[in-house]
Design a protein around this nucleic acid. Structure first.
Lengths: 214, 214
DNA sequence: GCAAAAGTGTTAGCAGTACACCCATGA
DNA sequence: TCATGGGTGTACTGCTAACACTTTTGC
């Protein structure tokens, strides 16, 4: 996940989610989320899934006063090194396991927000076709399989996954192209299809523990 | 769903979701949702499922100026006749189908909020044990089946549903009591169990059309 | 007894899993 | 020609839908 190191008080030096305040009274909150992501992480909007996660408005969550934060969950492939922004001394990618376990300390109630975001991402991955958002424009079935294996820490049979994922109508579409790796038979390339909701889920996690994230 | 008839401009006379502004700067947004529900609908918090739905902050959504609304989804059994509140000329229960079809006009962007709420409720019903929130403290398996049949407009086999729902660990728990109807064998009474997430879903809808709601 | 609703047993079919096998490529 | 990853065929198994059947009540 993308975190910034706070350069100003409060919580100076601690890690925090990238974010900020509305620019002016007329700015849409979704536009503001895009803007902050662009300013603090230099993330392009292409191939970027962005959905509202939730709103956090407990009275004491910010020592500066009453702050109500609308959190957005973003998922994107290809991870560029983010650049330091205006009020961020440093920004960089962090392992989700490090944050969830408490090894990386977060400012404000951002650990709670991160926990909610991971839960949402897991649920979305399971019940929708969101997994393709982790892949490039075109991808192989093995690429897609790696997404599912990374998120839940499971090992899937490539042969069964290969057919299962193609049987879901509208999930992925073949492009006719191939990708050659250093070894082995070339793999067919696919792109995301129009389907967004999956019945039934492709994978069903056995235990709901908080491990398995990378 | 619960709607109020607006007594003040803008949209005077139109239907709207119950709601209002924060009382004071220190009020928690969840507390405010509870308060508005109590004030405008006289709804007790017992047996009330209340979860955040989303935040709506498009610049032009309220002609009075910039208003950011945090919407909450509430689900409860037993529907009392709500009483008129402070800024609501009239409040009452409305059919979801009437609202979704456009027969009942809603103020602001509340139709969008309602649509999101129905979608959320359907998804939650399918993947979680939320269906018991529509039932009383104790209920029969047939009661629970009616919830699923009403939400998706499907017809389920009572015999298979009877066993399927009992096989899910922690979903429902027998109370040992029975309920006698006018005819037929008495039914065993159950109560909600600790489980909140269901793998796999009890029912899987075939089509995602917008009908089937009552 | 009869109708109606609750609850049980049984079976065919289907979908998921496991794995043997074949295919196409680089070295 | 061998190793490696991609792709196909197939048997086994566990779950589910369908439905015959039994139980318990009110009338």
């Amino acid at each position: 996940m993308l975190l910034v190191e706070r350069g100003v008080d409060p919580y100076r030096g601690a890690r925090a989610l990238p974010g900020g305040f509305l620019n002016h009274a007329g700015e849409d909150i979704l536009d503001a989320a895009h803007r902050e992501l662009r300013e603090e992480a230099d993330l392009d909007v292409a191939r970027l899934h962005l959905e509202q996660l939730g709103t956090y408005g407990a009275p004491g969550r910010d020592p500066r006063g009453r702050v109500i934060s609308v959190a957005y969950l973003a998922i994107a492939p290809e991870l560029p090194d983010p650049v330091a922004g205006t009020d961020a001394a440093d920004a960089g990618w962090e392992s989700a396991a490090d944050v969830l376990s408490g090894r990386t300390k977060l400012a404000f109630d951002h650990l709670r927000i991160v926990t909610d975001g991971i839960d949402r991402a897991r649920g979305k991955l399971e019940h929708s076709a969101l997994a393709t958002a982790f892949c490039r424009e075109t991808f192989t079935i093995a690429d897609l399989q790696q997404v599912y294996e990374a998120v839940w820490g499971v090992q899937l049979d490539p042969r069964n996954f290969y057919r299962k994922v193609q049987k879901v109508p509208g999930f992925i579409e073949p492009t006719g192209q191939e990708r050659r790796a250093t070894k082995g038979r070339p793999a067919r390339l696919f792109q995301a299809g129009p389907t967004t909701v999956l019945h039934p889920p492709l994978v069903r996690p056995e235990s709901t523990d908080s491990e398995g994230a990378r």
